[in-house]
Structure formats: C-alpha cells, structure tokens
Design a protein around this nucleic acid. Structure first.
Lengths: 392, 392
DNA sequence: GTCCCTTATTTTCTGCTGTCAATGAAAGAA
DNA sequence: TTCTTTCATTGACAGCAGAAAATAAGGGAC
C-alpha cells in the first residue's frame, strides 16, 4: 500500500482494537459483552478499546430503544460501525473494461461505474483509472466524507505486499508497480490484489464467509477461480499463486486446455470451453456464453449435456478442494452462475460422489454475483488495508 | 492433552519465550542476536526470555571455542537446546502392530520397539500400549531423565484437541477417547493425532519443513496421505479431515477405488493397487508390494509400467496440491519410496506438466522414511504439546 | 602493553496492553 | 422502596517487550 496525503489514520493502534473493530464490522451490532465473548478479551479491554473508536466516529452506540428486548438487568448497549464514516473506491480491471464502485466502510456500494478499455498499455489504463477514480471522488464529495483508500483487483499473479502486478495474462502486463503508480495519480493509499483473492476478502469480512476460519470461494465464468481461506487467512501461496482450481486436471482424456494439459476444469467449464463445445455438439454457431445459455434454456439436449458436463467438472474440482483442505463452506459464485439451473444438480452430485468421508459435510452454497461484485472485492481490500494500516 | 502427575511444566510462559525456544529447537545453535533477528524481537527480549530457559536446563550456552569464527567484536555466544533434558515417547498404531520410540527433546530417537497387535479391541490395544510404554519408561530410567509426554499417532479421523479417535478404519474404532484412556494407564500427558499430521509436525519442527510457512508432506505406501502446513500451521480441516490426496480423482476412467470412485490416486499408486495391477498385467501372482517391487527391479516391463503409472498419478496429485495451495516445498516420503527409482521420473514429469504457472516453482523433494519415523512423528506432537502446554 | 574499534549481550527504565476486582448504572421483581 | 440481575466502567496492577545506555569481550594499531 502506498499512502500520500489527505487521508487520516485509523485509530486502532493495538491488536485488540483492530480485532474488536473487525468483529463489529462483520457481525453487525454487538453489545460490549458479546464483543468480549467473541474476541476472548475481557470486558474492560473492550470498553477501553471501543471508546476511542466511538470518539473518532467509527463506531456508534446503537440507541434503538424499540429493538431492545425486555430482559433482566441493565440493558445492553450495542455498538455498530458507522458505515458513512469513510468511503472507499474499488476498481476491477479486466482485459476490456474497468468497473469501479464507491463503497462505505461497511462495503455497501454507493455508486458504480464502468468504462471500456481500448488498450492494455499500462499508462493508458492508468489514465482511465485515474479519470474514473476522479469521477467517484467527485461523487464522494456529495456525501461530505473523505475517500480513505483505493483497492484495485487484477486477475493473474499479483503481489499485494509489494503492490506489483507480476503477470496478468488478460492485460498482458509484467511487473507493473501498480500500487505506486496509482497512488501517484490519484493521491490515495492504494491496495492491489488478485481479483479472486479480493472477492474472497469481501466474502470473509462482509459475506458468506463471516466467522469461518476455513472456506473457499469458487468463481465460474470466463475462467474458473478459487480463493481459499485457511486458519482465518487468505492463502496466497509461497510464490503468490494459489487456488488455481481451474487448472486442476480431472480427466486425462479431456479437452486440451490453453495451459497445455488435458481435462483441466477450466477446459471443460469456462465460458469459452462451453461455447466451443456447444458449437461442436449442436452445430449451432452460438456467438457467446449468453447465446449458448439461451440454446440450453430452449431445451437443446446437446447444449444441456455440455452444461451438465461442466457442472460435473466443477463439482469434482470443488470435491478436490474439500478433500485437501476440509473447508467448512464452499461459496460458488461468478458470472457463470447464470447457468446455475443447468448444472446445479451435477455440481452437487459430483461433489457428493468425489468428496471423501467428512469432507462431504462441507456446506456448498451459491451466491449470485452482480457485475460490480469484483470491484466491491477490491474495495474490501482497501478497507482491510485501512483498518490494519497502523497495526500490521 | 490429558495431564497427570510426575511431569513438570515447561518454563516458557510468554509467547516470546515459546517462539524463541521453538526457533532454537528447529534452527540448531543460534546466537542471541540471530535469535532476535529471526523472531523479530529485540535483543533485550531475547536475553530475558533465554535466561530462565538456561536456568531450567532446557537451553545450553554453547562454549565450543574451536568452532568460533575469528571476527571483529565481541564473540557471539550461541545457545542450543539440551536434547537430553527431557524424553518423550511416540507410538504409532497400525492395524497390525504398535511401533514405539523413545526420543529426546530434539526428537532424536534413543530407543525403538515394535510389537504385533492381534486384536483391535480398544482395551487390548491400550493394554499393549501401556506395556510398551512401560518398557520404554524403564529404558528412560537409564538416562536419568523423566519422560514428559506421550504422543500417539493413528490413521483416520482424529480430533487432537479433544484427544479422541473419531474414526479409524484400520483399527475399526469409533469415538475412542484415546488420550484420556492412555493418560490413565500410563500416567503421562498424552497427545493423540492423525498419523500423517504427526509426521508433518515432525517435518515442520525437525525435518525438511523447518522455516517454511507453506509446505506439504506426501506419504506413499499402503495409502497415499498428505499433511499440509499453511500459514505456518498444520491444516486439520473444519471437520478434522484434510490432506486426502489419496482420494483426489485424477482419471474418471481409472480403476475403482474402495471409496467408490474411479481413478483416485490411491486406487492407482497405493501398495495394494500396485500389487493388484502387477498381477493383472504380468500374470505373476506376486505376494505383496515387496514382491511386486522385486519383479519390477528384475526388469519386467509390465511391472515397470505399473510403477510408471503410479508415479504419474502421484505427480498429478502433487501438482493438484501445488496448484491449489502454492506450497514452497513438497516432501515425498513413505514406505512406498522403496520404489522411488521406478517412478521418480514420472512423478517429476507429471508434476511439471500439471503444475500451473508459478506453482511449478515448488521444490519437490524425497525423504526416506525409516519405519520408526511414524512413531517419531507421534513423539513430535508430544514435544509440541509439552512446549506449548502453558502458553496455548 | 595500551587504547581504540567493533560487535554481542545485559541492564535499566519506560510505555503500554490487557486483566482483576470493585463500583456504578439501569432495568425488572419482590 | 429495595433487591437482584446484567451490563458497563473505573482504577490499580502486573507483565511483556522495546529503547537506550552500559558493559563485555575480543582483535588490531601503535
């Protein structure tokens, strides 16, 4: 993360304060005793850590008299995060567009924008980004609150700590020091991370991964990606790459993948693989994933079979993750979920069949993924950096 | 872990002391400044934490004048762990024998024993274990040092925290509170863990995993197992099961596995799978894995082909782990390594082909596995519990 | 041999975090 | 009104770890 001017520091200087704030952020309004129980701190520590956060305006005492349950003893006094206290911008860079959102501290989207990208040249992309960020900063002025950070999500090999995009196939970038560059052009502290990991952070703090120490996010769409949380931390891998479920090979006799192997999950279930296979099987020259989907929804048996195969591949991939890591939950998401009705059953069946023993007890969920969600993940990484900036 | 009498507490009451001791334990003799650098503590903190450990006899000042490098300034004063300060017993329970070792604090084996098991009845197994432990306790008396803990490794689903064997297929046990039972019969603090995880702990603290925050141990033999370390911690999975690389399915057209699926790594590369396939291919009714290995070593092309297939399966399984977790290193071990010359090349080739991008940078090593090694892993878990007993 | 330089270790002091135990606050119940 | 219950706060305190300065232990220059 690179920091410049105009942003303030988050007043959680101790591990306890940081932990408490994160707990309240994820688990909604909590009384001080509930916080103490969850964080395993003493009530006194909570009181002391909460005060400066309230004084700084990041936490609010919830004085909602109506919602109070009549009960014995002194009424509890819940605190919650004032989402409006700070704003963040998240940008998702794809090969052909930029998606940006303005979110509050609770990662609720306030404004969303997207612009097409006509070139992959880092300078030009950076200029477009700066313009888009500027637009959102102007919007933010309307809320009267400062934007405290910018998160950027890029697919590929990204080194978050260094703020460098090591290699991005879609953008054709190598070793671009994006955080530094974007910090210079926007004047904001910048966090750069891999797109799937960013989405995973959003789920971990604000989504279906709240409170879980081990879960996985699987995204289905143009590619098949996977974000992993183990021991409560997002897995980045020793070499910056992890969660490559798309290139888990499940069938040596399967179709050739662009990575050179046969039978990768991505070679069977990614959008382009499905489109190709639908064309081959049905003879209909469907233009894109949406057209292929329409054909299947119209009842074309060949197309439906292709989706069934894709579902099976995804289910087997998820089972592999479950067998190796034993997560508590797997969250399936992504644009490809539009076809969920066509392969849900196959995913579940293949998962159930291939998951070994207790691994099958893993809860497999699906979550629709609005198009701004990737950008929201980027914003979540910015929020994370903001909250931890002093502590870690 | 259950604790009774006759054992002392480890005098590392602070996280810093615990971390320092573990660092010295794993990284051999270190000077105080090296310790400070590694642990990122101040030199002052190291001095203060080291003193009580030296006073208690767990650390020694290394006064080896000869080994001292002539250099400028005050000579450094390395400290090292006094392995002889405490003894531990590790027991590996298999379906047909008990293997036990007496180790010192540095997990060096002092004495090893094994006895056959004739029944799986928990009471009888426990009695045999108690007798074996008693034998080693007698041996330990000869060293004049107390045994401070007992570690037991069992294959299957084991809840270390609760000390309960949830399910062990080979022993046909369900929900056996082994730690409690063994603590009662032996009078020692007992740690029970899954066998592969125990081996992984041994590698993490005393083997090829020292200093790595992300690595995997893959065992090849009667089964194919995998222990994972992510973020410096052994992965147990939300439901107590993780690392089931043996049931990662790599070929839907592969042989049927006892788990009901086709093409599991274990159905191709486990001892019994290899023996079965060698019989089928060569027509020779080899009696066991050793006989199959002999046949292949004699040059029988059919048998060699079976081993090549097994190597390929293992390599693909490892690549799957690497793709998902991006470990820094994979350590291949196990009794099956006797055939290493027959499938090493295939493992490497299959791994290299199926590993995606940076995941291929993962260092794949092999380590011979003496038969007492499983029991040593159990002892390592006991050492871990002993050192952490007060702190965690 | 003495002095100086360098590096390692220890000492002393200090700040700060989180716990403990006692106290205050706000309700319903007797 | 007073008691009980539960939640929250306060102030004293213990303990950890860091900073800076002091001390230790060599080698080398003179």
């Amino acid at each position: 993360m690179r920091s410049t001017s105009r942003t303030e520091a988050f007043p959680a200087h101790t591990p306890a304060a940081s932990q408490i704030f994160t707990t309240v952020l994820s688990h909604g309004p909590l009384t001080r005793s509930e916080i103490a129980a969850r964080t395993r701190l003493s009530a006194a520590a909570v009181t002391k850590a909460v005060r400066p956060l309230i004084e700084a305006g990041y936490l609010l005492e919830d004085v909602d008299e109506d919602a109070r349950q009549p009960s014995l003893g002194r009424p509890a006094n819940p605190v919650l995060v004032d989402g409006g206290r700070a704003l963040f911008i998240g940008v998702k860079m794809t090969g052909d567009e930029l998606i940006a959102v303005l979110t509050d501290l609770c990662c609720r989207i306030r404004v969303a924008r997207h612009v097409p990208l006509t070139t992959h040249d880092p300078k030009a992309v950076l200029a477009s980004t700066a313009a888009l960020v500027q637009e959102l900063l102007t919007e933010a002025d309307g809320f009267g609150v400062r934007v405290q950070g910018l998160g950027i999500a890029v697919s590929g090999d990204v080194d978050r700590a260094a703020g460098v995009v090591r290699y991005s196939p879609f953008l054709e970038w190598r070793d671009v020091p994006l955080a530094e560059l974007a910090a210079m052009t926007t004047g904001l502290p910048v966090t750069v991370d891999n797109d799937v990991r960013a989405l995973t952070v959003a789920e971990q703090w604000f989504g279906a991964g709240v409170g879980l120490s081990d879960f996985a996010v699987v995204t289905v769409g143009a590619g098949i990606g996977c974000g992993l949380v183990v021991h409560g931390q997002v897995v980045s891998g020793a070499h910056g790459v992890a969660g490559e479920i798309g290139h888990v090979a499940i069938d040596p006799a399967g179709p050739l993948c662009h990575c050179g192997n046969r039978g990768c999950v991505e070679a069977i279930a990614a959008d382009s693989a499905i489109v190709g296979k639908v064309r081959e099987v049905t003879g209909v020259q469907v233009a894109d994933a949406a057209a292929a989907l329409d054909l299947a929804h119209e009842g074309d048996p060949g197309a439906r079979e292709v989706y069934a195969r894709a579902g099976e591949a995804i289910g087997r991939g998820i089972a592999t993750v479950a067998n190796l890591l034993g997560p508590e939950r797997v969250i399936i998401s992504g644009e490809g979920l539009a076809a969920y009705d066509l392969f849900a059953e196959q995913i579940r069946d293949a998962f159930a069949a291939a998951a070994f023993g207790s691994a099958a007890r893993c809860d497999v969920q699906t979550r629709p993924l609005p198009f701004e969600e990737w950008a929201r993940g980027a914003a979540a990484t910015a929020i994370q950096s903001f909250i931890r900036s002093d502590t870690y």
